[in-house]
Each structure stands twice: as structure tokens, then as C-alpha cells.
Amino acid sequence: MDLVISISSGICLLLGSFICVSGSIGLLRFPDFYTRMHATSVTETSGVALILIGLMILSPDLLVFAKLVMILLLGLLIGPTTGHVLAKAAYHNGLKPKLTKSGNEQSSVPSSERGGDISKS
């Protein structure tokens, strides 16, 4: 039983830390702000979840387990919210995303909406 616990938690922790590191590498490698956000969202969802689940398997009692669940729920609630708000603020303050050509044709929105939206709505 102990072996099963340590192996399963080890796998979770290993995968989680691999995802966290690759998320950070994405944060460095991607070309602009919006694409970097995708990289961090990887860390914030599966990286956090896997590491916390790995710890949950190891947790000695119910209280520790409950606190880990709380941290996970908070993370899953807070992560996308801050991400959305950050993207919205950047967009409305005139930070244009770098798009591929096909993407550019589809959306002519950013230049016209630049900045003026907050006073309007």
C-alpha cells in the first residue's frame, strides 16, 4: 500500500513539476504578452493541480487534505479570473496582440476599440 501511495504521488509530482517548468519556459519563449498568458495558464491549471494532488495523496490527516483542496479550489477560481482581467486591461490600454496573417484579417477590432471602450461602457 505504501508503495502504491509513494509511486502514484511521485508520478503526480514529477508530471506537475515538469509542467510547471515548461510553463515557465513558455513564459520566456513566446513572442508576445497574450501568448505568454497561455503558457502561464498551463502552469496554473494542470501544474498546480497535479502537484497538489500529489501532496494530497501523501497528506497525513484530514485537515492537511482539506487545506490542499482549498488551495486547489482557490487556485482554479483565482487563476482564470486574474488572467481574464489582465488580458482585458492590457487590451483596453492599447497593447495589441501579435497575430498571424489569417488571424489579422478576421479581426479588425483592436485598432478601432483602442482605449475608448472604458469611457463608453
Binding site: 477560481l77 483565482i78 479570473t81 481574464h84 482581467v85 482585458k88 472604458i118 469611457s119 461602457s121
Partner: peptide, 19 residues
């Protein structure tokens, strides 16, 4: 005067209310 985030940001409003 610019209004609070209340009207502008639906998402923050609901999440913050929950938290």
C-alpha cells in the same frame, strides 16, 4: 468620475463576491 469596477468587470465582480 470613472465608475468602480462594478459595472465594467462582470467576472471580477462575481468572483470577488464569492471570495
Amino acid at each position: 468620475r470613472p465608475r468602480g469596477l462594478y459595472e465594467q468587470h462582470l467576472v471580477i465582480r462575481i468572483v470577488a463576491k464569492t471570495l
